[in-house]
Structure formats: structure tokens, C-alpha cells
């Protein structure tokens, strides 16, 4: 067994030991606050906090571009709505759209599924890290969607030190492997959210509070749902910045370091937040 192959096992062991529940197709969260990170915006590994109660966040057109080693470009857009429904609980719905390079001059455009998810923050960080669990469903909606419904569970931990903050995510998806994953040459859609049997990773970020700026980096591994595909290692860096009290911008870039579909990716997105009307009962 090579050293490269041992690492994922060690990582998986650690993640399994420390995270009680693991997850589904990566659910994307829409969180406007620059310090409240969000899967896919721009990094895959997110923090353990839900969107504020009663906040409605709108991500109109977060964009992702991928290029694999064969020179094929794919684009993805995932409009999303997230709402802080209960205390420490957010629900979210997204409609990932993929634009796939289909050969010389050709493109295939379609919806890759309907993504509905919930994230529940278990606690606020003290000496105990902040913990959260999540669940999501990717429904077979759209021309580029998988042919079945897939459910995932996810566990998240966040621990903050004075010099940096760390997040660990683990996710597991149930269901049979599809006959063929849509957009085999690099389906995009919900941010690096092709269906994964499991995904585990860690990210680190550091805020610059007077500038309302966060810089972050991550490394994660994912096993594609198809058993015969090899494990993928990914690394990425990104930044989130608060442009106004209601608007946050994120930018990120990274690389698939291993697996059958090596390549790089870049993403940019923005979110706008409002509250829903309230009346005294």
C-alpha cells in the first residue's frame, strides 16, 4: 500500500471517530455573514453554525468553473434560498444547473437535481467545539439529474483558536451507485457536489475583523458514488468578504489532486440577506 493510499484511510478513521453522523450530496448553505462559512461558498468544508433565525438568504447565481486535465470546461450555477426556520436550524433549497462541454462547440445545459437540506447546530462553541448535524436530499429533477433520490447525512465540528479557526466535516450518502453519473466528464452543479459515497475534510480560516474579511484553505477527500472510481483528494483556498450589512462576496479556487478527474476549479458568488416580516402575536 502506498503512502498516498494510507493517508485517506487515516483521515477517514479520524473523521469517523470524531464525527457521529456523516452525510449526502453536499448540501450548499447560503450564509451571508462572512464569518459564517457555507459549503461551496467558496470552500466545501463549512462551519457548524446555521444561518441566523428568521434570516432569508438569497444566492442568485453562485458560479463555478471546472477544467479537467483533458481540457474540458464545465460550468455550474446553483441558485439557492436558505432560511433560519427555528433556533439554530436552517432549511435550504437549491436548484443546481450545469453547463457541460459536450465536445466540439457543443454544450449541454440542464438542472442536475433539486437539493433540499436542513442543518441543525447542536451547540455554541465554548471549550467544547461547536457541533452540527445536517441532512439533505437530492431529488431527480431535471435533465442532468441522477435517476434516483439520494439522501445524505453530515456532521460538522468547529473549533476556534486565537490564531485560526478549524472546521471538520464528514458526510455519507446512502443509495445505490447510479448506472452513470450525469456529466461524467465532470458534472458540476452544486459546487464540487457530485454525489460522493463519503466525504471528509478539514478547513482552516483566519478573520481580519476590521476588514470583515476571511481567508481560508481546505483539504478534503471524497469517494465518488461509483465504487470503481478512485478516491479524490482536493485542496482549495478562498476568501469571503462582507461588502455591506446585507451582502457578502466569496471567491475561491482549488484543484483536484488525485482521482479520475483531476483538474482545477474556481468559484465566485454573492449572497443577499433579508428578514421575513414579523408581527407581534
Amino acid at each position: 500500500m502506498t503512502a498516498l493510499h494510507r493517508w485517506p484511510q487515516r483521515f477517514a478513521l479520524a473523521a469517523t471517530m470524531t464525527i457521529s453522523s456523516l452525510s449526502l450530496p453536499q448540501n450548499a448553505k447560503a450564509q451571508t455573514d462572512y464569518y459564517n462559512t457555507d459549503a461551496g461558498r467558496p470552500l466545501q468544508i463549512e462551519d457548524a453554525y446555521a444561518v441566523e433565525r428568521r434570516a432569508l438568504e438569497i444566492q442568485a447565481a453562485p458560479l463555478r468553473l471546472e477544467r479537467n486535465r483533458r481540457g474540458v470546461y464545465n460550468w455550474g450555477i446553483e441558485p439557492e434560498l436558505a432560511y433560519g426556520l427555528f433556533r439554530r436550524t436552517q432549511v435550504e433549497i437549491g436548484l443546481p444547473i450545469a453547463i457541460l462541454d459536450a465536445g466540439v462547440g457543443g454544450k449541454t445545459v440542464g438542472i442536475t437535481g433539486l437539493d433540499a437540506s436542513v442543518l441543525y447546530n447542536l451547540n455554541t462553541e465554548t471549550r467544547i467545539p461547536a457541533l452540527a448535524i445536517g441532512a439533505s436530499v437530492l431529488a431527480p429533477v431535471g435533465g442532468l439529474a441522477a435517476d434516483a433520490t439520494y439522501a445524505s447525512v453530515k456532521g460538522i465540528a468547529t473549533k476556534t483558536f486565537q490564531w485560526a479557526r478549524f472546521h471538520v466535516n464528514g458526510q455519507y450518502t446512502a443509495g445505490k451507485a447510479p448506472a452513470s453519473v450525469p456529466g461524467e466528464a465532470g458534472a458540476v452543479g452544486a459546487g464540487a457536489s457530485e454525489l460522493s459515497r463519503w466525504l471528509g475534510g478539514v478547513s482552516v480560516d483566519r478573520p481580519f475583523p476590521l476588514k470583515s474579511l476571511l481567508i481560508s484553505a481546505e483539504a478534503f477527500a471524497r469517494q465518488p458514488l461509483e465504487a470503481n472510481e478512485s478516491l479524490e483528494w482536493n485542496a482549495a483556498v478562498g476568501t469571503r468578504v462582507q461588502l455591506s450589512p446585507r451582502v457578502a462576496l466569496d471567491v475561491g479556487a482549488g484543484s483536484r489532486l488525485s482521482g479520475d478527474d483531476k483538474g482545477w476549479f474556481a468559484t465566485i458568488g454573492g449572497a443577499y440577506v433579508i428578514g421575513l416580516p414579523w408581527r407581534k402575536r
Partner: peptide
Amino acid sequence: WVTTYEQF
């Protein structure tokens, strides 16, 4: 074990 939370 603290469960306070933020609200919009």
C-alpha cells in the same frame, strides 16, 4: 454545553 443562537 451552550445553545444560545443568533437572530436576524
